[in-house]
Design a protein around this nucleic acid. Structure first.
Length: 1116
RNA sequence: AGAUCCGUAGCUCAGCCUGGUUAGAGCACUACACUGAUAAUGUAGGGGUCAGCAGUUCAAAUCUGCUCGGGUCUACCA
């Protein structure tokens, strides 16, 4: 008739996962969990789209666990949490993968393979591991809606991106400009930062470096007039080929510079040079300072030098100098022709200048360095690009024209142009030091040739225009951890530059801008319909073959090459072609709040309800990725944050703290992990081991520990409950017994439980799942299993099914039930399993899954902090007594008469009194004798309370502490009663009196003579270890019970089987057994205990060094 | 190079915000005990210059500064 709690052979977490997963599938538990909250407040979550062209790794499991647990928690808190999944499908990694697979390079696209076929291939590859992802998603228990995911390559998605771009265009935020980018002359292509970060691109190479001399033009303004002869700025470069393009010198405004009189080591001519003071030692030998200038000749080894002026960089600003290498192509006229109004050849200031290397004066060629470009633009230096895209000097650079700046073509007899430039400068008295310099320089990963930084056209979003607003709104975002928001992200925002959108690739979202050949007119398209209209319009105006394939159905695929085949017409009637660029994939993902709903073309209302997100979470590596692009677009388009809370989780490292990489072979396969340990233990470990934002040293031993320690203990507790509840038929059918009517121990565990609910709720609300998990763990281990169940064991298997027993069942049941709910967000399978096992019998909930239930609410009326403290006292006391027993080697089964516990005050006495029974039972002691506060039996010890006294006493603290340590009982008692002056003599002489009160003392007890004593903090116990004959007999009886119980167990008797016991007569134990016969029989469920002179059958047992023979007979 | 996180027992981590005089857990190790939850549990033991240096303070693991080591992100250097 009655349903039983399911009992198990042993804990098998993976099979629990499987079983529950099947149940979820069958019952559509996820969909149901969302449906059940229909009409409730939405909690908006954005899923950062993974790319399915790579295998999922263990690091995906941690961030998804985090996302999942928050969503599950919020659902249980009554919110409706829809979780639309998504896939990131564009981007360089995909293209590179395809190229590798096809054995082609970027240059082959459009030649060996059509763009159409290439993109087709990309589209195939992009979902290659979707099955694996779906698999891990399910197995790890990640609830996300994959039925209608957003996919970034779909037309609708791209259409929204176009809408976003056109909005930005309308606001004037989208513009084209030159920027300095890594460029590979050998490959003839720009490189993305991603390509630059491929392993092995940075190599140590030796290059010709030169410290060159720029001749200053003396002016009235600067006090260099005092220098006799020419004055030169020293500047260092590792790329002498950039020197003809030099347009400025940059100094640090706060750096100290010196003017030094010396000789040029190559020409031996007297010169004056300017360089950073810190770097003097690098170029001048100390012994040469103030040397003999008059006798200097070419043969002199030690070059004399002398400092005769010192000045700040800011004082140098504005000084002019002679052009170093004038040629036809870099005359002032040419420069001003290229940049009207440019004013080159001046000293400017820049923050990026350091005195780590070089001279503290930076040769600035705006075309060939990002910093140079920036300061050049700011200071109107103009720009010279005297090197073409093949990497050779253009015409008009004298003898260097046509020469490659590096050996890009593998010429056998290549002569380094950098060396020739240096030689020329040496001859012209313009080189101060030329040497080989070894440094780390980036190389093209494809051609292995050094890259250069080169000005390239690119499209930008003017994020700097809203920088202040982005900073301001960022302050309203709840960052976990906060430091990422203020530090890494905040700093990034402060120093933000415009967003470079352009990518010269094939598989991605095309930039929807069409332009006339002369660049005079352009159009930015914001929707498919607009494009189709324009297609027709262009066909009509331009006629002929224009757009003939697109007239009938309009455009069907918004990718290359189709968009590029389309010609539009300008307002003045000229044909317009699309600019060739694709956009940065980060724009794809950053626009997902809008594009996932195909906003504004559809789902306007849905979008409005789902923006901004309440919560997102990804790895810290997304700080400048997704977190940034989401934020930027939110601010640019809607003047709003895109998310209110963001959790950034740290990296997963291997157990030795190394980054996981395929190369090192230390990657952890998430499938293996979950298959062998189950998703719950894995998730629990990932969450509780370290805060999500700390990097995690992943060690499967830790999962094993979580499995054994936490899940094992909880499982055991359930098993224990099920075992006896099934015997007694407990199904929670009786009325709920008011907590106040239950035994104190029940009140205590329920109080702890409600405190736990309160804490866990707070932690989850604060996005501190680690703290929540640890609190739950502590409760299960310390409170529930190792104290409540241990102390209450007998209540479950002894006695009749009545009040006390029902209290015990109800209490333990409630603990297990609430635990299943508290742990549900983190360990969803086990929690549901536990919940269902309980609910299948009791039917207390109507919902079919713990994930459909409401998160427990703490009942403040049940929380009794005093009781919790008291119990802690009982635990500590018991622990002390047990340690004393151990010390004197008296086993717990041997009863002892008495323990003394000194109470320092009446409150403490009261508390001990209330838990005395528990202590007695736990430690098998007959009496707890509480010594009142004012007894003289014990000696008290006082220690100064540094916290209260320190502030008042300051320097006299040490002295006072010594005084207080010397107090005796009388003095301590006196201070406890009334204020006491510590320094009466001093005070009498007019010194500051030191008055102390009871608060300023920390009183504890000293040893009690004649007893075994143990102390912990303020708590002292003194154990009476005398074993009287009576106690000995009782100990024997208990020991005997234990032996019989073992025999019962070994013989596989049922818990309820009754027995008859026969014992061979013996002198040693018989008196004890007779005296405690009733007790013994009750314990071992014996109907008789008989002493026989002869015993043929039976077992030899040993009880306290006495051997005796017993025979146990099961009653039939 | 800049930013940020981290550094406490052999290992994984608390404690740090709010300074207080014996720095805690768990795992592992050793020994002993317990055994009707038993692939569990208890007790005891060894194991720490709280990365280093300096400062503030009566008092620093805790606050400040610097240095070193590790991770990550960004940048890439004349």
């Amino acid at each position: 008739m009655s349903v039983k709690y399911t009992e198990y052979q042993q804990l098998n977490l993976p099979s629990i996962s499987e079983e529950i997963l099947a149940k979820w599938k069958k019952e559509n538990s996820f969909e149901k969990s969302v449906q059940l909250r229909e009409g409730k407040t939405p909690f908006v979550f954005y899923e950062g789209p993974p790319s399915a062209n790579g295998m999922p790794g263990i690091h995906h499991v941690i961030s998804r666990t985090l996302k999942d647990l928050v969503c599950r928690y919020k659902t249980m808190q009554g919110f409706q949490v829809k979780r639309k999944g998504g896939w990131d499908t564009h981007g360089l990694p995909i293209e590179l993968g395809v190229e590798k697979e096809l054995g082609i390079t970027k240059e082959d696209i459009g030649v060996k393979i059509s763009v159409e076929d290439y993109n087709k291939k990309c589209r195939e590859v992009v979902m290659r591991f979707k099955d694996k992802w779906d698999d891990i998603t399910q197995k790890m228990g990640y609830w996300v809606d994959l039925n209608a995911p957003y996919v970034t390559f779909e037309n609708n998605y791209i259409e929204t991106l176009w809408w976003c771009l056109s909005e930005l265009y309308k606001k004037g935020y989208l513009y084209e400009s030159v920027s300095i980018q890594p460029y590979s002359p050998a490959a003839g292509t720009g490189l993305s930062s991603h390509e630059l970060n491929q392993p092995g691109t940075y190599k140590d190479v030796k290059d010709t470096s030169a410290v060159v001399m720029f001749k200053a033009i003396k002016s009235e303004k600067i006090s260099l007039k005092s220098a006799k002869g020419d004055v030169f700025f020293l500047a260092w470069t590792t790329t002498p080929w950039t020197l003809p393009s030099n347009l400025g010198l940059t100094v640090g405004p706060n750096i100290d510079y010196v003017l030094v009189k010396t000789f040029n080591p190559y020409t031996h001519l007297p010169i004056n040079v300017i360089l950073a003071k810190n770097l003097l030692g690098k170029y001048f030998k100390a012994e040469g300072e103030n040397g003999d200038f008059d006798t200097y000749s070419a043969e002199t080894k030690l070059i004399p030098w002398a400092v005769f002026a010192e000045l700040k960089g800011s004082e140098l600003e504005g000084m002019a100098y002679e052009q170093l290498l004038p040629f036809e192509a870099n005359t002032l006229e040419k420069i001003q022709e290229l940049t009207p109004g440019a004013q080159p050849f001046r000293v400017i200031t820049g923050d990026f200048v350091t005195t780590e290397d070089g001279t503290g004066i930076v040769h600035t060629a705006p075309a060939f360095g990002a910093d140079d470009f920036r300061v050049g633009k700011k200071n109107n230096l103009g720009i010279l690009t005297l090197v073409d895209k093949q990497g050779k000097f253009i015409d008009g650079v004298g003898e260097f024209s046509g020469r490659y700046v590096k050996n890009y073509k593998d010429e056998k007899d290549y002569v380094d142009v950098n060396v020739d430039i240096s030689v020329k400068l040496k001859k012209e008295n313009r080189a101060f030091k030329v040497e080989k310099y070894e440094h780390n320089y980036p190389h093209c990963w494809r051609t292995d040739k050094p890259i250069i930084y080169y000005p390239l056209d690119a499209w930008f979003i003017k994020t700097t225009a809203v920088r202040d607003r982005m900073v301001e709104l960022n302050k309203t975002i709840n960052w976990k951890p906060a430091s990422t928001g203020t530090g890494r992200f905040g700093n990034w925002l402060e120093n933000m530059v415009d967003w470079n959108l352009s990518r010269s690739r094939f598989w991605g979202t095309p930039l929807p801008i069409w332009r006339t050949e002369d660049g005079e007119e352009e159009k930015c398209i914001g929707s498919v319909q607009e494009l189709n209209n324009e297609i027709k319009k262009a066909a009509e105006v331009l006629g002929g073959e224009t757009n003939k394939h697109y007239l009938h159905d309009g455009i069907l695929d918004l990718h290359k090459p189709y968009v590029d085949e389309i010609t539009l017409v300008s307002d003045s009637g000229k044909p317009m072609k699309r600019v060739p660029d694709l956009i940065d994939v980060w724009f794809d993902s950053g626009a997902m709040p809008y594009a996932q709903w195909h906003f504004p073309f559809e789902n306007k209302e849905t979008f409005e309800q789902n923006f901004p997100a309440d919560f997102i979470a990804e790895g810290v590596d997304q700080t400048r990725g997704w977190f940034y692009t989401l934020h930027a677009l939110g601010v640019l388009l809607f003047d709003s944050v895109a998310y209110k809370t963001v959790v950034s989780n740290g990296l997963v490292l291997d157990k030795n703290g190394n980054k996981m990489s395929k190369r090192l072979g230390n990657v952890v396969d998430p499938f293996d992990t979950i298959n062998s340990f189950g998703a719950d233990a894995t998730r629990w470990y990932l969450i509780t081991n370290a805060s999500p934002w700390d990097s995690l040293k992943f060690d499967s031993e830790g999962i094993r520990e979580a499995q054994r320690k936490f899940f094992g203990t909880l499982y055991n507790t359930y098993q224990f409950f099920a075992l006896y509840a099934n015997v007694d038929g407990f199904a929670f059918k009786e009325n709920y017994i008011p907590v106040k009517d239950r035994p104190e121990i029940d009140q205590w565990i329920l109080s702890s439980l409600n405190t736990l609910i309160k804490d866990a709720t707070r932690y989850f609300d604060e996005y501190e799942p680690t703290q929540a998990g640890r609190a739950i763990e502590d409760f299960v281990d310390e409170h529930l299993s190792n104290w409540y169940v241990r102390l209450c064991r007998r209540r479950f298997w002894k006695g009749e099914y009545e009040h006390d027993k029902i209290c015990a069942y109800q209490t333990l049941y409630e603990c297990l039930e609430v635990l299943s709910q508290l742990m549900a967000p983190v360990a969803p399978f086990f929690a549901d399993w536990l919940f269902n096992n309980l609910n299948a019998v009791s039917g207390r909930f109507t919902v079919a899954s713990v994930h459909h239930s409401d998160f427990p609410r703490a009942d403040a009326s049940v929380i009794d902090t005093d009781l919790e403290k008291r119990m802690q006292l009982a635990q500590d006391t018991s622990s002390l007594i047990l340690s004393l027993r151990k010390k004197v080697n008296i086993k717990v089964r041997q009863p002892l008469q008495k323990v003394f516990i000194p109470a320092l005050d009446s409150a403490m006495a009261e508390r001990i009194q209330q838990v005395a029974d528990i202590i007695k039972a736990e430690t098998n002691i007959k009496e707890v004798d509480i010594l009142a506060a004012d007894n003289d039996f014990i000696r008290k010890k006082a220690k100064a309370n540094f916290k209260t006294l320190g502030k008042r006493l300051g320097g006299k603290m040490k002295w006072a502490a010594e005084q207080i340590a010397g107090f005796d009982n009388t003095l301590i008692n006196r201070v406890m009663e009334e204020p006491y002056t510590l320094n009466p003599e001093d005070a009498a002489k007019g010194g500051e009196p030191i008055i102390i009160t009871g608060e300023d003392l920390e009183v504890s007890t000293d040893a009690i003579p004649g007893y075994e004593v143990a102390v912990k903090g303020q708590l002292t116990v003194a154990l009476d270890i005398v074993i009287t004959d009576d106690l000995k007999m009782e100990g024997d009886a208990r020991e005997f019970v234990n032996r019989v119980q073992n025999i019962r167990k070994e013989s596989d008797f049922n818990l309820t089987d009754r027995i008859d016991v026969q014992v061979l007569e013996n002198a040693g134990l018989q008196p004890s057994l007779i005296q405690y016969k009733d007790y013994i029989c009750a314990e071992i469920l014996a109907d008789s205990l008989a002493f026989l002179p002869v015993l043929n059958a039976g077992t030899e047992i040993e009880v306290n060094d006495v051997t005796l023979k017993v025979n146990i007979l099961k009653k039939v």
